[in-house]
């Protein structure tokens, strides 16, 4: 009889808690993006392909399928950290030896451009305008600085120029202000 009581009590408890948990699971369900979306949101979207995948989305899919998280040079350490946090893995140092460079954008030396459209085809974000045999130019605001247009240029007229410091984007680095010496 005691045994039966104990079993009954335990069973009832199990039922109650099970129902509670089940209710909570439905009631407080957290809607979350699929993993690939979350990873893709973290990646810098330069579409540079330096990870070995044709764009950020494919790399996000690869990461979701277990690829390394340290293949994104434009994202740098910050991206790796965020990915590690999201996926619950150890952050790894950046794969490529290259350090995160200063932000750059492509610039076409327009008098040297022969209008071959090769860079236009290479640009993953359609940030180069121009037509065949017409001079091309880069929309600096849309350029992600991925470097992909530099190599295809047959006449080497594309430079990667560091983005100039502006008053709006100044980072309050007081140490960097050049102090004029007087007398």
């Amino acid at each position: 009889m005691t045994l039966l009581n104990a079993l009954l009590a335990l069973g009832t408890l199990a039922l109650i808690f099970g129902a509670l948990l089940g209710y909570a699971a439905i009631r407080f369900k957290v809607e979350s993006d699929p993993l690939v979306e979350q990873i893709d949101d973290i990646l810098p979207q330069t579409q540079c392909g330096q990870c070995g995948y044709p764009g950020c989305r494919p790399y996000a899919e690869a990461i979701a399928n277990g690829d390394d998280i340290n293949k994104c040079p434009p994202g740098g350490e910050a991206t790796i950290k965020k990915l590690a946090e999201l996926l619950g893995v150890e952050p790894k140092p950046l794969n490529a030896a290259q350090e995160v460079a200063i932000k750059r954008v492509a610039f076409i030396r327009e008098d040297e451009c022969i209008g071959c459209t090769k860079c236009i085809q290479a640009c993953p974000v359609d940030a180069i305008v121009g037509a065949s045999k017409q001079m091309h130019t880069v929309i600096a605001d849309e350029c992600t600085g991925c470097d992909l247009c530099v190599e295809p240029c047959p006449v080497d007229c594309i430079d990667m120029i560091p983005v100039a410091d502006s008053v709006e984007r100044w980072k309050w680095d007081l140490q960097a202000i050049p102090v004029k010496m007087v007398e």
Binding site: W172, L174, Q175, I177, V179, K180, M181, V182, E183
Partner: peptide, 8 residues
């Protein structure tokens, strides 16, 4: 002589 830079 040079000027001192400081933050407010």
């Amino acid at each position: 002589m040079s000027f001192k830079i400081a933050s407010s």
